[in-house]
Amino acid sequence: MSESVRVQASINGEKREFLCEPRQSLLEVLRDTLQLTGAKEGCNNGNCGACNVILNGVLVNSCLVLAVEAGGAEITTIEGIALKDRLHPLQQKFLEHAALQCGICTPGFIVSAKALLDNNPDPTEEEVRHWLAGNLCRCTGYDKIIRAVLDTADSADMQSVRG
């Protein structure tokens, strides 16, 4: 039973094909098979958000998706967030605001914040805090992260990214 399955998906705009067992999570395959180690395993049960990716336009915990479910999907991981020639404005603002310390939660926060701004380009502070409630950070106390996201939404750079 549980033979390996061949799965095709578009990951960060690139067609990828991989073999996985049904029991493997998308997170395991991203990290261990595809060497996309930006998504982190924190709690592995959907509480911390460190493994967040965007699956067919929807923010998900990659630890709560089976890799076999991702057949035909479009997936954006933290590795697909930066622009061709420079950081994404969110990444730039996280640096400017020092919105990270140990950095383990940062990929998840940036992916979540990207999904928020794709969905709601001009969020209020409350909306940002609500949206990011599923991302845990034990270093920053969150304030700098919230400010970095709000500042990104207001930035001229973000306007140019949106086009």
Binding site: G46, G49, A115, W131, G134
Partner: peptide
Amino acid sequence: IGGIQIQGR
């Protein structure tokens, strides 16, 4: 239910 990423699934 859960948070935003839980509600996505």
